[in-house]
Design a protein around this nucleic acid. Structure first.
Lengths: 204, 204
DNA sequence: GTTTAACGCACGGACATTCGTTTGCTTGCT
DNA sequence: AGCAAGCAAACGAATGTCCGTGCGTTAAAC
């Protein structure tokens, strides 16, 4: 209970570590660098973390659950299957841009996880993809989209968002809203949704 | 020495290292693991390589040049701007699938390169993107495609292919040709090219 | 055709560093 | 007095790299 505007040392460690893992990679980042970024000596970190891998796990931890939550929440919108897909895609893209660092780490450092933890993450990721796939199939069944292969469309959406997470920085050439709008159009276009652009523009 | 199917020790080292870098990452792969995969002791590697980083550089080295070459060659096809784009996209996708391991390493291990080497790679990558961007803009100017933002379309194509490189394995659910065809359709669809699917099917 | 010298290449041990982690000890707040 | 949290120092293990040695093959010298 310090009187200063402390965000908590543990939180600071997680944030600085995330920054470094993002820039250099997990293996290439030493705990001494993390400690230095926080303004501590190495040993002191262990007053706040269990181990380096557990620190990575903490960082990657909530991401997928949060992503699934945000998608499920977005899917509760009123309208037809395309409206639902549109809303979920907007949430999907926004999430990947806003939490780009964590998303990137979550993708790039899967290999650095121990087997058990990795499979948990992969399983959740699969669950997320199945959720998106369901929305695509719904739109296809409703005759609102021309689905070539639902899985590939989902891969496409995932690829786009993942890629965004690797380059997006606030204050760039485009605002987040513009980016989301464009990529949503691309998604509807690739599903041959009639008047894809107009649909997206109309919602803004 | 019996004349076995020699591939050259240096080449074997590069191949085994690429496999390991792909699976575990550059930093997480020790030269002792590489040596063991080749059937050597660590020190013996240094009869064939300069350093670990130089080994990575060798592996990543040719990739982008090869990619650019393959794209330039594909662009020399007869036809309109869409035909050209289509041919280049097919080459683009095929390349990323066939050389998935190297492509993946080239993307994931950029961070592991020293500053000088990294900037060379980034520069070449930019050159490649500009080449694709030119094709997209050509198609737009010719009135054959409805271009939202040329750079974003290129990002989209890059994202898709990069993602393919992370999951494609020969002998999967779909043949390489099918995959290329589908993703080419997606690309033309997202450019609002009329009769996108028919155009692609017709070419096969 | 034999000897000799050279060379390529693998071995295994050693090296300085760096890593993650642990351990006491100290400090300052309550 | 108690306790969370910092520090310095040290640990063993692992890493990239180098070096002295020995072996098998090749090629020139006799």
């Amino acid at each position: 209970m310090v009187a200063t505007a402390e965000r908590g040392t543990a939180q600071a460690i997680r944030e600085e570590a995330a920054k470094l893992f993002f820039e250099r990679g997990y293996d290439a980042t030493s705990l001494r660098q993390v400690a230095s970024a926080v303004g501590l000596m190495v040993g002191s970190l262990y007053n706040h973390i269990d181990s380096k891998e557990h620190l990575l796990l903490q960082i990657m931890g909530g991401i997928i659950d949060d992503l699934l939550d945000s998608a499920r929440k977005a899917a509760m919108v009123d309208g037809d299957a395309i409206d639902r897909l549109e809303a979920v895609l907007a949430a999907h893209l926004t999430f990947h841009a806003e939490r780009a660092q964590e998303v990137f780490i979550g993708n790039a450092e899967l290999r650095s996880l121990s087997d058990g933890a990795r499979h948990v993450v992969i399983e959740k990721r699969h669950e997320y993809e199945l959720f998106l796939q369901g929305l695509v199939e719904d739109a296809g069944r409703a005759g609102l989209a021309d689905v070539i292969d639902a899985k590939i469309h989902v891969y496409s959406f995932v690829a786009q968002a993942t890629h965004i997470a690797s380059w997006f920085k606030p204050g760039g050439r485009m605002s987040l809203d513009e980016i989301v709008a464009i990529y949503t159009k691309l998604a509807l276009r690739e599903l041959n949704v009639p008047d894809a652009d107009a649909r997206v523009d109309q919602r803004r």
